[in-house]
Amino acid sequence: MAVKTFNLPQKAFVNKFIPKSKFFEKAKVNSKIQQEFTDAIVRITWAYKLAENTINISGTDSMEELQIFNMQLKQKEIPKNVLKVIDKAIPSAILYTFEFENNFAYGITTKENAEQRYFFSDWNKELNFDFTGNTIEHIYQKIIKLFIQDKAGITIKNESFETILEKERQLANLEREIASLQNKIRTEKQFNKQVAYNKILRNKLKEKEFLKK
């Protein structure tokens, strides 16, 4: 399968195969993780490099470049442990494109933050990436916002990037709490406890809708 193409200058197109062993050397991974690479990945291609010398947009002290890696997979499952190794080995931020047979998906991580978090699209859902901006970091932040808006359904307002990330984190925690409460309601035999759980659930659902606005 050909590497997924984007509307970027030809100078940004790298299309370079990266041996899996390169990541083993840089990240010093154990044999178990090496086996995960073998089991999950057919081929890793460095598809694009977004930097001042390729797209004429300057970097910042915290983010000079943004890479796009194409990951050809052996199964329709995103190998998150493998991505952690790659992100540890590569200093710049990476937008991932995943391909399995005729299926595709996208992913990225909040790499510059202390709390590393991954965002993924649904399979076969196209996202309209905007590779324009004042800086490389600005482009990266717009990409993260696109994932958050797509997956979490948060309305992106004129708020700081950190505020939007915090909203998404709170929403993810709420989703876990709601799922736990729904499970308790399904399995609880005592009616009075079901009522109590339902009351808490209603409040959590209201919080969720408020956060998304």
Rank of each mutant, 00 (worst) to 15 (best):
E101S: 11
T187Q: 14
F210Q: 15
D61R: 10
Y197I: 05
K193S: 07
F131V: 04
Q67T: 03
Q141W: 06
K16N: 10
F98E: 00
E159V: 12
K22F: 07
N198F: 02
F13M: 05
I78N: 01
Q149N: 14
I143M: 11
V85Q: 07
S31A: 12
S62F: 11
E137A: 04
E112K: 14
Q75G: 08
I139G: 01
N134E: 08
T135C: 03
Q149G: 10
I185Y: 05
F98K: 01
E52R: 09
A93C: 04
K184S: 11
A152M: 12
L83N: 07
I68H: 05
W46N: 10
R43A: 06
N203F: 13
L181E: 01
Y48W: 05
N102H: 06
T45E: 15
A93T: 03
K204S: 13
I90Q: 14
K206C: 07
G59D: 08
I55M: 05
K74T: 06
F100D: 00
N53S: 13
L165N: 13
E207I: 07
Y48M: 04
P19T: 14
P9Y: 00
M71R: 04
F161A: 08
Q67V: 02
F69S: 08
E36M: 15
S121I: 00
L146Y: 04
W46Y: 13
L165T: 11
K142G: 04
I57C: 09
G59N: 05
E188Q: 13
Y140I: 03
K204A: 02
S92V: 08
T109S: 13
K151L: 06
M71Y: 08
H138L: 02
T163I: 11
L83M: 13
F69W: 05
E162M: 09
I178T: 01
N183L: 13
E126S: 02
I148F: 01
N15M: 10
A47V: 01
Q141K: 10
K20S: 15
D130A: 06
D122M: 00
E159T: 11
F161W: 11
A179R: 01
A196T: 09
L66T: 04
I144C: 10
E101N: 09
N7V: 05
N192Q: 05
K213V: 09
Q35N: 13
N53T: 11
N103D: 10
I156E: 03
I78H: 02
I156A: 12
K184N: 06
I148W: 03
V14E: 14
V3T: 15
T163N: 13
N173H: 08
D130Y: 01
T97V: 15
K32R: 10
I108W: 09
I144E: 08
E112T: 12
I68F: 05
W46T: 09
D61A: 14
R169M: 10
I136L: 03
N113R: 06
I68T: 07
S31V: 11
I136V: 03
W123Y: 00
I185C: 09
I86V: 13
M1R: 08
L174C: 09
S160T: 15
I178V: 07
F17A: 14
K206Y: 15
K84G: 05
A89W: 08
P79A: 15
